[in-house]
Design a protein around this nucleic acid. Structure first.
Lengths: 136, 136
DNA sequence: CCGAATCCCTGAGGATACTG
DNA sequence: CAGTATCCTCAGGGATTCGG
């Protein structure tokens, strides 16, 4: 089986949702990243994405429908389900990488811009964000 | 001034909103495309995007806030406003191009996938769509 | 001509609880 | 373990109207 994912791989404080680039839905980019090294089980993904199962399932179903991932059910005493990228899904990795590369330079400016033009929300808000597609 | 935009440049029937990429918001990708050749006036953009002014203004303001475009007001007997890409905004063109290039191959499969898994909506719906970032 | 203001509506996203 | 089933909130998107 694929080697375990680094639990710190997705930093919940990373301001990457300021990056103006989205693939499919909010979580799809991160899911694809997590599947980069091979098969992953549902629970692995849920733990990493700090996501509730409903939303995760939605994303996974959409990705499956569009042919980006394959879903495999392993019956048994303890049932488990595994997901993996198709070649089409794998082709998205290049694009995600391009987006992350692009974002590295202007990210600080983006953060500044958001802070400057948005004193509307709560003041002591440390720009929380659930780490989308541009995770390192 | 920049040469006129082709009115047919953005085909309202193009199924490009099935392409799983978004830049900023729904219209930002198209706006950036329209600004590729230089300055554009508000009315040019509104006509091309077949968009109501409020939503267009929103997108433009966001793009301006994030440093992707510059807004210039020309006062006078007939006031008009022009928008142009910054170098940062221009750097997005590469990403958009990469996304469009990627999308060309799997687009048909994406359309099929959507139609197969979505007999839920109205039947005689000719996949209307407002032509997002992947316009040719 | 270029928006701003208003109202409305849908749907993505999420919290919680339950099931084969 | 891997999901459904509900319910809720809120922001994106849009139609319409008004203003400088």
């Amino acid at each position: 089986m694929t080697k375990p994912l680094d639990p710190e791989m997705l930093d919940p404080l990373c301001p990457s949702d300021l990056v103006p680039f989205r693939v499919e839905d909010k979580w799809a980019g991160m899911i694809i990243q997590c599947l980069e090294d091979g098969l992953r089980r549902f629970s692995e993904l849920r733990a990493l994405l700090r996501n509730t199962s409903k939303v995760l399932t939605q994303s996974l179903r959409t990705l499956e429908r569009d042919g980006f991932i394959i879903r495999t059910v392993h019956a048994g005493p303890v049932r488990h389900v595994e997901y993996e990228l198709t070649s089409l899904g794998r082709s998205l990795l290049d694009l995600l990488d391009a987006a992350r590369t692009w974002a590295r330079a202007p990210l600080d400016e983006l953060i500044d811009a958001h802070e400057r033009h948005q004193p509307l929300t709560e003041p002591a808000n440390t720009t929380r964000c659930p780490r989308p597609d541009t995770s390192s």
